[in-house]
Design a protein around this nucleic acid. Structure first.
Lengths: 294, 294
DNA sequence: GCACTCTTGAAAGATATTTTCGGCTCGGTG
DNA sequence: CACCGAGCCGAAAATATCTTTCAAGAGTGC
């Protein structure tokens, strides 16, 4: 294999230039100097451009490349590109701070992504697989599954329901507290009721869960507060984790990420358990949707 | 400065290939595949050699390079050299296995979390901050903002709207295609319409965006296919990236994660720009919700 | 089955790189 | 001081590489 990308670092290149300097002519030295001092910049240049920048000719540039050990300028240029990339990746991004009002957009993107990644890691680490397994079994074997959630959690509830429907299970999401309770009354043993609330104390979702619980339905709570009021009516509790929140960044943002991961895990577990029916159902729903795209 | 060596990592390249795969032709796909699977090897090849290795023509190689966002093959090659160097110095960890039907639940959790983290990283790396900035400015200054999305994207649309409402902006989410169009007719210059569609070709959301676009509204598309039909009516395009999907894991899952990050970034940007009014509005909405928790 | 669009590679055209070659400088010498 | 020769240097020719064009072929919808 060609030795283009060898262990060369920027400083190694500089050293090479120094070593070879004595055997270099004046113009070659100018070229070598330019290359050593700004590898990234030079990588973007053609022979002609580099020749012009160093006030020399193409021939000299090529000669220099040869002297440095490359077959020609083309290869030197590739090596320089590699060097530049290494150099850049060396600089750690270091995202530690909060999002400030005057952060440039690029930082906002980086910070948000980083925070959400952190939230995912935390959630995965804290998730109790035994509880998850129990919830999975319950949903996989349920006649129907009702999911309660209001506000941002309502969207998570809908997300779960959409997915369950896709694999052929009966599922409903309720954001309206009154309708939720009215529907909860219909539930019985063998059904599953899931409440999603970050605070663990949202009355609007606790109430329907209580009703379901008292009627013998298997109940699951997905909450960020494992000791919250909602857990007293829950057979299984799945805990979401929360990132510290700042003024601009409401807790709802990271709790949503966390809730979605939990819900995804729940769904994947159910999909595994019901694979025989889930796979064809998924395929069928794709099929049905295909003609909606042009 | 030329953006050749941007935060691209080997996996980011792979993500890009996946994102663009749908808009690729068969031969272009072969080239992209070769490049993604062996950046170092391909960096050593000339157009002709790569064309031969992939059993295609030079023209196709160049076309592929263009599609991947480089001005030509020469630049793609430089980028590949950079990638190769990074890879060699960094030795990627690479935990890339699929979720299998018989995976224990703990593995499912780990894999899902890992995949979503990856998706976030890819999305952040690929997000065009200039486009984002333009979208932010538009929304921050809009009289009202309408967001279109159906299916899973509909939930993302609602998420965005919920957040915008919290900082005191006028925003509406539309999942019903008919109502969406009916409402789009009401829009005018100074308003903003946002379409969210992973495939980029969902007629139900393209139609209202078209109507809005033709009425002079500022339009934004959030899509996984930067070349999709939806972009022709979009003033600004925000690209989401896609993880490879497996049988059990529908694309909708990772596209949702990606879409949410984009939407969060958009929101944070708007919150920054409108800080004076956003902060008190946020506080007020907390206050109002407090009594719902016991 | 036909017309149409989209895909594709061959070859022409444009650019970049390498080689050639003669002028030039500079140090030494008569 | 004039002349000579060795080696450096760059202009331009030669070659390699990359890009564009174009027409034939594959695939697709009607």
């Amino acid at each position: 294999m060609k030795e283009i990308f060898g262990g060369a670092t920027a400083s190694a290149l500089a050293a090479k230039v120094r070593t070879l300097a004595p055997s270099m002519t004046r113009s070659m030295h100018r070229v070598a100097e330019a290359v050593a001092s700004d590898p990234a910049g030079c990588a973007a240049l053609t022979v002609t451009a580099l020749a012009e920048r160093t006030g020399t000719s193409e021939a000299t540039v090529v000669r220099t490349a040869r002297l440095l050990g490359y077959p020609g300028y083309r290869d030197l240029r590739l090596a320089l590109a590699g060097l530049a990339a290494q150099q850049q990746s060396g600089r750690a991004p270091a995202i530690t701070t909060d999002i400030a009002v005057d952060d440039p957009l690029a930082d906002v993107v980086a910070k948000l992504a980083h925070d959400e990644q952190q939230t995912l890691a935390d959630t995965a680490a804290a998730l109790d697989t035994a509880q998850l397994g129990a919830a999975v079994d319950a949903v996989a074997g349920a006649r129907r599954t009702d999911v309660y959630g209001v506000g941002a959690s309502g969207l998570v509830a809908q997300d779960l329901v959409q997915k369950l429907l896709r694999i052929g299970l009966m599922a409903h999401a309720h954001s309206d507290p009154h309708l939720a309770v009215t529907n909860a009354v219909q539930l019985r043993a063998g059904d599953v009721a899931i409440a999603i609330t970050h605070s663990g104390s949202t009355g609007d979702v606790i109430e329907p869960l209580r009703v379901a619980f008292e009627r013998g339905t298997t109940t699951v709570a997905i909450t960020g507060r494992p000791g919250g009021a909602v857990t007293q009516y829950a057979d299984h509790v799945l805990t979401t984790s929360t990132a510290r929140e700042s003024e601009l960044r409401p807790a709802a943002m990271s709790s949503r990420t966390s809730q979605l991961l939990v819900v995804d895990c729940l769904f994947m577990g159910v999909a595994q358990r019901t694979y025989e029916t889930a796979a064809p159902s998924l395929a069928a729903s794709y099929e049905a949707l295909a003609h909606r795209h042009r």
